[in-house]
Each structure stands twice: as C-alpha cells, then as structure tokens.
C-alpha cells in the first residue's frame, strides 16, 4: 500500500490503535482539526455505512487538497439524508443535479476550473463526484464511462451498499447473487438475486485504464484514507469503490456495520485492491480467512439460505465466488500466491 505499514495491533481486534502511532501517521478522522465535510445532524439511519464512508473519504480529500474541493452528488440516500433545504450537512461547495449525470456534472466543474485557472481567476480547486451503486453502476454508468474515457480530472467515489436503498431496497446491478431485495424477493425455487455474470465496476474501471482505481471498505479507515490521498495526488480520472454496509437493506444490526464490511473483506467476498493504469499494484491481504457463512449469516437478506433446509448448494456457489476472488486478486498475501 502507499502508506507506512503499521506493525502494532490491539490484541483481539483488527483496529489499528491511533495511540500507538506517531502523530503524523494518525488518521485524518483522528484529528480534532478534521474538516467535518459532512457535518453531524444529518438524517442517515443508525449505523449507515454510506454516511461513514462519505465522511472518511471527503475529509481525506479535503485534507489532501487543503480544503479546495467541490463535490457533485448523485440522487440517492447520501443526497437525501444530507441536505433537505434549508439544512445541509455539507461544509464544502456541493451540487446535486440528477441521478444519472453526476460524473458529467463533475467533468463540467473540472473543465470550468481548468479555464478559470488558466485565466488566473481562480486557484487550484479539485473535484470529487459521489454516488451510490445504483447511481454509479446502473443509471450513471454512461456518464461515468465517458468521464473515464476522456480522463477528466475527477475523482469518482462509489458508495456500494448493493442496492437502491433510498427507494426501499430494490435490486441494482451491484446487488450480490442470492441477496433478497424488494425486487428479488426470497421466494420460489431460486430465492433472492440471480447468479449472473455480475457487473463489477472496479474491473470495468480498470478496463478503461484510467490513472487510478481502488476499492476500500469502511472497516479499514487508514487504508481508505490513504487511497483517497493517493487519488488526489494524481490528475485525470480516478475511481474509488467503497463497500458501505446498509443496516436497513442488509438486515444487519446498526452496530455491525464496520464488522460486516470487515467480514466482506476477510471472506474474500469483497476484494480490496489498488491499481494504476489498468494494473493492480497491491491488495489488502486477508488476515484471517473466514468462510462466507460468517458474512452471510448475520444478514437478513440471506436469511432464506439458512432456513429449515439450509441452501448448502447456494452457499457453496457464493463460497466459490469468494474463492475465485481470493485466487484472482491474490488476497491471501504473498505466501499464498
């Protein structure tokens, strides 16, 4: 990874203790002087992974740009819970236009900045675009791909909670197989979402060979911050895909958000990596490999797999997908490769 590895771990947890680190190595979130880009008082659900992810990411981007940042936001939970007028949680210049055009709006902002800089009318200002998985992988995909292809100077952050949670937990193209949503109910012979070829946007972003692509989860704060920091060091199109568990949509306890994100990574369900120009540069290795059941069982959206007659067949298929991720991305670290 692009930051100094930390050797000390608190016994029995996976948390890097800030108190064990030198001050300059501590996370942005640990600083009393953090920007609080998305301030308290918003209307997110208890335990919202997206609120957490947005705060981590945008505060890190603000730190990296010394506060010279503009954000474009897709329609969705993040937009709704953070802003009904006249209130706003955003302490940064922020615009919401539509559901499907956020990357293009950000491209426009970046183009304006470029001209204004050239004319000497404005100092260097950077642009982030953000949206949920629906706004990114489905309705906003065309604009996102266009922004990638033009290599516009935009960092696009997708907060992936695996569905349209704002409208009542419908399926998106990022909904994982077998998961129950309100449009893929737990009914019939093959309950939940279909097993398809998937639409895994980080890989699609890689195929665009843009300067920077990374995945992260809200369970690894320092890793997430380092990736945002790295992204802001680079010019051109950048993409960070952050897994943000949704207690409402996943049917998990509000207190389990960070744990669920960690389990997604430790089971291999969600590979965490970093890539430049289409080539994977590093992965965040699994520390204690766990079976997918550990990740699936706490989630009500998979409850139909653990009924009177457990769907061992379906669980095996999900395990196979995780195993494939582990092989493909080399998630067990150097020895395992």
């Amino acid at each position: 990874m692009s930051f100094q590895p930390i050797k000390f771990y608190q016994t029995g947890t996976f948390t890097v203790g800030n108190r064990l680190l030198a001050p300059e190595e501590r996370s942005v979130q640990a600083s009393a002087k953090r920007f609080n880009s998305i301030n308290s008082g918003h209307r997110a659900c208890q335990g919202c992974g997206e609120a957490l992810g947005a705060r981590y990411a945008i505060d890190a981007a603000m730190e990296a740009t010394q506060g010279r940042l503009i954000a474009a936001n897709a329609t969705g939970c993040l937009e709704v819970f953070s802003t009904p007028y006249p209130e706003t949680s955003w302490q940064i210049p922020w615009i919401h236009s539509l559901f499907g055009n956020t990357a293009a709006v950000a491209s426009g902002i970046a183009a304006a900045q470029k001209v204004k800089m050239k004319k000497g009318e404005r100092r260097n200002i950077r642009v982030v675009a953000q949206g949920g998985d629906g706004g990114t992988t489905d309705i906003g995909f065309g604009c996102l791909s266009g922004m990638f292809e033009r290599n516009d100077d935009v960092l696009y952050i997708c907060y992936d909670n695996g569905g349209y949670m704002n409208t009542g937990v419908q399926r998106s193209s990022a909904t994982p197989p077998a998961a129950r949503t309100s449009t893929t109910p737990a009914a019939g012979a093959e309950p939940g979402n279909v097993f398809g070829q998937g639409k895994y946007l980080p890989a699609i972003a890689l195929a665009h060979e843009i300067p920077y692509v990374a995945t992260a989860t809200v369970a690894d704060l320092r890793d997430l911050e380092a990736k945002v920091r790295r992204a802001m060091e680079i010019r051109g199109a950048r993409y960070i895909h952050i897994l943000v568990p949704c207690p409402l949509g996943w049917g998990t306890a509000a207190s389990d958000t960070v744990r669920m994100a960690r389990l997604a990574k430790e089971t291999g369900v969600f590979p965490v990596f970093e890539a430049e120009y289409g080539e994977i540069k590093s992965v965040l290795a699994i520390r204690h490999r766990l079976p997918v059941e550990d990740y699936l069982k706490p989630q009500k959206r998979y409850a139909h797999l653990f009924g009177k007659t457990p769907r061992i067949d379906v669980i095996a298929r999900l395990q196979a997908l995780a195993d494939r991720n582990i092989r493909k991305y080399g998630l067990l670290g150097k020895e395992a490769n």
Partner: peptide
C-alpha cells in the same frame, strides 16, 4: 450544468 454552476 457543472460548468455553469462552477461559474463558467
């Protein structure tokens, strides 16, 4: 839209 909102 983005460009205009950014003052261009």
């Amino acid at each position: 839209i983005g460009a205009s909102a950014a003052g261009a």
